[in-house]
Design a protein around this nucleic acid. Structure first.
Lengths: 118, 118
DNA sequence: TAATAATATAACATAAATTGCATATTCCGC
DNA sequence: GCGGAATATGCAATTTATGTTATATTATTA
């Protein structure tokens, strides 16, 4: 039951919920994009993403100097369902709309490989 | 986003997850039944149930000296989905089976009104 | 109304999570 | 190899959550 509690603990923070909602929408995002979209400082985002990774909710891959995060796929069904519900709830929040706007208005970055074209 | 974080915080504790799984199975349970099934002390259970009630995940009704808890119905769809996922995960845990056994083996209580037959 | 059962709350101690700031670490281009 | 960009980590302070024990509240029954 500790694993399950850990999953919901990971879902119990606004920054992490907003990050998951953005990842669900964008597919893959680097830390600097999340930092910009969520209007938070970089260590904070890194730490929250580490928390999500540590319990298996996201995976990361390195692309040059960037670390790209995305929603994990190899998780139990009930975890998928919990994440889906979390994303659904987060997407309805007005903060999510603001996050998306900030992400869109982010100044141009050095081009890099992307899973899905933006 | 704070409401949403509060919901997942409520789902992030083993005692509360196990309680929700029992409520999903039994429909309605009083504090002393939960106390017995979860093998915990009474104030602990009362406090955890209060936490669930405070964020709207369960409702309570008084029946004589008992307070009966049950899963709340009037909640947003994504909350229902989150609870369903939580219950699904908790039900798979071996602790849930033990909780059910303890509940079944609970010594007879004074009969009372029940929403569903036992 | 006294005794008892069921539940809630208060007070306190302890453990976890969160944050900001400073500092590593890794990678790229020059 | 150097400088800069992106990311991660360590530390200390603060907040939040949890557990235990004692006590208060509410309802029942004799």
């Amino acid at each position: 039951m500790e694993y399950q509690a850990a999953i919901f603990t990971a879902l119990s923070d606004p920054i992490r919920l907003r990050s998951l909602a953005l990842l669900a929408r964008e597919g893959e995002l680097c830390v600097c994009e999340l930092t910009h979209a969520l209007a938070a400082n970089q260590p904070k985002i890194s730490k929250h993403m580490a928390a999500l990774r540590d319990c298996g909710l996201v995976t990361d891959r390195r692309d040059a100097q960037w670390v790209l995060y995305s929603l994990a796929a190899d998780i139990p069904q009930w975890v998928k369902d919990a994440v889906t519900a979390a994303v659904a709830g987060a997407t309805q929040d007005y903060l999510h709309a603001e996050d998306v706007l900030r992400l869109k208005s982010m100044p141009a970055r050095t081009p890099r490989k992307r899973a899905s074209g933006v």
